[in-house]
Design a protein around this nucleic acid. Structure first.
Lengths: 169, 169, 169, 169
DNA sequence: TTTT
DNA sequence: TTTT
């Protein structure tokens, strides 16, 4: 059925790139999309939307986008369900078919972590979406220098079985 | 910023129509949008998306759509934030600019609650989205025969101050 | 770059299915999309949009849609250019990634040409878009019972070189 | 019915701003949207799409966009019909609900015509869309310093009767 | 936990 | 809590 989303906004952090057990790249990031109208307090609010990208596009995202980058996303909305403390939780994300880099070419100077994995050298890496899967522990695996992912691309570890067979392409 | 969503799917229940204190109509419903590809178990999953509609369109939705109706939605994604048991929760919804009725004309026979407010006569009315606002109690107010809403259109009661001033049009 | 179109409307005619020289299926049809507001004369106008679909989806369109069918289209806009009488002409079409059939299942009774090629038995087959390519003549070739296409899927014959290599997937 | 288009691309020229007889601002420009895949010759083609914007947004477009600017457009497709030399011609355009400026703030240096009406001082003004209305002559009228438009916003003059009553809002 |  |  028709399920189409188009967004333009800015990354709230560097993207995170991980790999499924069979080597499929998956990148995640949050896009801040400013609302068109200000609220009663005269503030211009934003919506913070979770984006997932797979395969080659995931690696491009990891290489070319960073915190603050302007990007366009064309994809579909998906809701994932999980249990937490016996309560059903919902996690809404946009699965991107296509991510467009909207920064001017020469604007990548400084700021980006040069190791391209979105994690500051010393800090442990966590789930960028606090409301998401909670049973995460520090993921020690590496794959091509990136963090490996067995399942939920938004968690450091997980029981939801995600593999290439889930990929709709 | 650009934030555009287009969906086609079926209502999981009759829509709920409420009114803000100053009389603005607001309807909510959940749209089941089938995914394009089946999962590893060969099942065709669906995403269940929360839709909000305001004003005249809200009343049309309440009058013409019911559980199972096929509908198209053109709108934008919005994330609302609230606290529950000291934890931040997120509620994602589509604010519809336009809802299109895709049922054939003569297909409204039977099934729909004829009082058009989406609540079965004897049952208390609750939040259609379990993950949403929890501090709801049965709303006793009525307005033109419909349930009144002071705030969160998805709750029976609430502290989030929603009024016509929030309306972006 | 981002180029996304979503439409819901009705077919003005049965779709036309053709094949490129190397056997790729391509279907074309016109979708009548009613405007949301009526004009000064109080009439509800429609826009007539040219749709192209490739491969398996093309065959599904030919098999399941007919004149009058309600359908959703998710795709991108494309403009083709050609010369006619020494003047540059533009032909705008939507290349569909996905076509959704919105007719209720049991509603296909009668009306559709059972040979599934969109052409009434006795009538010569023409370009469904009168404003389009003009240098058309009756196409005599057949391919699996369908009309073959060497180039412009909207013409009966043509000089624009279209082949599978043009397919972006 | 659902008719939604989202585009990101670059202006091929400065936008043109005109006014209807009753003072409604209308801006037009062409957006070059690069295709995602290169063709057989390895070239990355673009589609050139005609955009119309009305009212306040039209004036913003005229003030903030110029040739080469990156912009996002959210709107709907519309086809206009006219006769030329006894032949029916079609003109496809995107009526924008919303135009987003995607250029970095400090990037407006040089290049733009400072009179903000999109017309070079000495040159006659023409239809930016060669395939469009042909019976144009230089429009002499002015309105608040801008070119006035009686009808087709893409022509310098015209017989198609466009007025504020046509505005769907 | 949020971007400009 | 989910629709056909």
């Amino acid at each position: 059925m028709i399920n189409r989303v188009v967004l333009v906004g800015r990354l709230t952090k560097d993207p995170e790139l991980k790999y499924t057990p069979n080597g499929t790249a998956v990148a995640t990031f949050t896009l801040a999309v400013n609302r068109q109208f200000s609220n009663q307090q005269g503030e211009r609010e934003a919506d913070f939307l979770n984006i997932v990208v797979w395969r080659k596009a995931a690696e491009n995202v990891a290489n070319f986008l960073k915190k603050g980058s302007l990007a366009g996303v064309d994809g579909r909305i998906q809701v994932r369900t999980y249990e937490q403390d016996g309560r059903r939780q919902y996690f809404t994300e946009i699965v991107a078919d296509n991510v467009q880099f909207l920064e001017p070419k020469g604007s990548s100077g400084g700021g980006r972590n040069n190791d391209y994995n979105g994690a500051p050298p010393m800090e442990p890496q966590g789930n960028p979406y606090g409301g998401g899967n909670q049973n995460q522990r520090q993921n020690q695996n590496t794959n091509k220098g990136y963090t490996r992912v067995d399942e939920d691309p938004f968690a450091g570890n997980g029981q939801i079985d995600i593999s290439d067979d889930d990929l709709p392409f």
